[in-house]
Design a protein around this nucleic acid. Sequence first.
DNA 1: CGGTGGTGTATGGTATACCAAAAACCACGC
DNA 2: GCGTGGTTTTTGGTATACCATACACCACCG
Lengths: 227, 227
Amino acid sequence: MKTQLQIVPIGDGQSLKVKAYEALKAAIMQLNIYAPDAELRLDERALSARFGVSRTPLREALSQLDQEGLVHIVARRGIYIVRKTKAEILEMITVWAALESMAARLATKEASDEELAGLHDLVDSFSGDALAQKLGEYSDANIQFHQAIIGLSKCRLLDQMTERLFFHVRAIRQRTIVERDRARRSIVDHKEIVAALEARDTERAERLVREHTLKLRDHVDRFVDID
Amino acid sequence: MKTQLQIVPIGDGQSLKVKAYEALKAAIMQLNIYAPDAELRLDERALSARFGVSRTPLREALSQLDQEGLVHIVARRGIYIVRKTKAEILEMITVWAALESMAARLATKEASDEELAGLHDLVDSFSGDALAQKLGEYSDANIQFHQAIIGLSKCRLLDQMTERLFFHVRAIRQRTIVERDRARRSIVDHKEIVAALEARDTERAERLVREHTLKLRDHVDRFVDID
DNA sequence: CGGTGGTGTATGGTATACCAAAAACCACGC
DNA sequence: GCGTGGTTTTTGGTATACCATACACCACCG
């Protein structure tokens, strides 16, 4: 993981503000912000020159990132990429658990049999070779599974609100100490969740999802070392 | 309820951007956006002149409101105050239910006996004369109760995420048809919730809060007429 | 009278110059 | 050598001029 900002050329977007926003977000996502030598300070003028746009749209993009909690703008001091504290990460996972358990509840009523079958396949496809994979890839698959459940709730707002949470949670995965059994047990949980959804067991699906995500919370609490 | 923007003089704040943001938000909150003759269109230059600030900080404030979903900015078309659809309102209440039920769960573990006693008093103070009050005032007291529960979870993120939801839900209360028994039954629910919290009954507190808020969802679904 | 094309205007987007405050730097004196 | 005061530099905040596009209006033509 790089410890310096990797600025990608601005692609196609609607406005320069949006382009700058996406480029910055992508750059921050690639950055290992918890590395000791990470470059956490941003400079408006330098970025402006690097992107080839003026400060105005760039500032609007930075302002948006500030509101989302990715960067912290201090007047006449500087703009800093935010390092979430461990307590904040734990809170995010807690909120995630709340939202996803509600999504599971809704999914038992809103999702079609076909959609649930697709989710079932998704889990199966990882149960075979997941153990052989690197933890990082498992983490992606894991998030993919959880986002799929949220999608099945048919509630757009749940999608929007969890998107930001996943971004930050993803950022700390390389700080997570590998625990051998965790991936395997996680897949067992996933299978149980899918079974509850397919049985249209609303209460059980909600409970399993909540407990599963709160397990992750405890795991991060115990095995992630930041701050 | 006024149908025109009520611009208040910019008070004291840190930056002009923040002042403009707060003034605009307050103005929008005072506006009955669902009135047929409501002024939903905003004009950057006109607002800039009215506030006595340049377009730059004003645009940053508007951009933030756009991200929060209060206004909708369309390039070279205009800036419009957003009228949430009924479906969106229902989604917001659903998410609210998810977040507050988790808050109740946490509160059974995090809140002190004194804090719960305070919540108990809050409910009692409204059980006596609530029926005599106007529905609007009851609505405020209602939101106050729910925010209190979220506060007792000791989870800042839950506070932040529900704040926006309450804003929009508050905006539709004058469109809610008065249902005579609802305030009374709501208070019964509240008392049960407080009892569960005081008994430290995590599962029951979570369930009661969720069911209570989902009741509101159904009520809005049936008795609120927008779109 | 109705449709169509062109020109003018309104409006959000962008670039740039300037401002004020905070920090860094440096010279000076003890 | 170290602290202290002032000056320079850095940096985010603000004001303003200009740009590009979507829309409206109107003249012109069929």
